[in-house]
């Protein structure tokens, strides 16, 4: 049974346990002053599927992402990634263990060439140690190996024509592609994409979507934050909805829109109609 098929038997309720979780979050909370930005009781992320994290603005999605990826530390609670305690670990340690993230505002390293950007992504590089760096023969072979992997990925993401350009000369969409390709250089098991489609033109969106789907095909788990409901419906296998720092609903993408909790969160309570996901959540209610 594929990971996606396994999800079919999972009940669509918040905090439900999954057959094969790669990430398990317990009682994670984070407050900024008096504001409790994140307060998640329990969440499991199924391995090998694409999980979308949605929610209205200010729901705490990005904060939650930062807590999971080590860019911020929770006030309390634990996260277990691939059987190991992840909370308290720093971001670079988690990345080395296979949890690699991208950013809402792309972080192309502008004054490095595109291929150097890619090569940076590879982990466990011998030449990254100070003294080994002084002796080229220690890392030359590995470097060539990394370079050919980088070139293959650039080709796959159709960025090979930019190979030797400064990353700073790329368009916003190309930077998104580069960031995704670069994260693959780290051989991730879990890719965390923070609004991968934000600011990308519709033509490129389609290609980005295909690339995200291809990650699942390779057995990589994907978790992403997104606002565009078309995107969520198109590529995700499971949707987690956050509001006011809490997980308020979970379920398959085609039924999540009719969940009363979700409707309340987006539109305020006292609405009784199903959300029209195609028109975007915040548009208007159907008669």
């Amino acid at each position: 049974m594929t990971p996606v098929e396994q999800l079919a038997d999972v009940a669509p309720e918040p905090g439900v346990s999954k057959p094969d979780p790669i990430l398990v979050v317990d009682d994670v909370s984070r407050a900024f002053g008096g504001l409790k930005a994140v307060d998640v009781d329990h969440l499991e992320v199924q391995r090998g599927v694409i999980t979308a994290l949605i929610g209205p603005n200010g729901a705490g999605k990005t904060t939650f992402f930062n807590l999971l990826t080590g860019f911020d530390q929770p006030d309390s609670g634990t996260a277990v990634f691939d059987g190991e305690i992840a909370s308290g670990k720093s971001s670079h340690e988690l990345a080395r263990k296979g949890m690699v993230r991208t950013f809402q505002l792309t972080k192309a390293l502008t004054k490095l060439s595109v291929v150097e950007n890619m090569k940076l992504g590879a982990t466990h590089q011998r030449g990254e140690h100070f003294f080994a760096a002084l002796v080229s023969p220690l890392w030359n072979a590995q470097e060539r190996d990394i370079e050919s992997r980088a070139d293959a990925l650039l080709e796959r993401f159709k960025l090979d024509h930019m190979r030797d350009e400064y990353a700073g000369t790329m368009s916003g969409g190309q930077r998104k592609l580069l960031e995704m390709a670069r994260s693959l250089m780290a051989d991730p098991t879990l890719v965390m994409l923070d609004e991968p489609m934000a600011g990308v033109n519709p033509a490129l969106t389609q290609s980005l979507l295909e690339h995200v789907k291809s990650l699942r095909h390779e057995g990589i788990t994907v978790m992403f934050v997104e606002h565009d409901m078309d995107v969520v419906r198109d590529i995700s296998d499971w949707v987690v909805v956050m509001a006011e720092g809490q997980i308020i609903a979970e379920g398959p993408p085609d039924t999540i829109g009719s969940n009363q909790q979700v409707i309340d969160a987006y539109l305020g309570s006292h609405h009784d109609s199903a959300l029209d996901l195609d028109a975007g959540l915040l548009d208007e209610e159907k008669p």
Binding site: H92, L109, S183, A186
Partner: peptide, 15 residues
């Protein structure tokens, strides 16, 4: 050099 450009990007890639 990557850290000079963007420290968070480098950290997200395990550096």
């Amino acid at each position: 050099k990557a850290i000079r450009e963007d420290e968070d990007a480098a950290r997200a890639l395990g550096k």
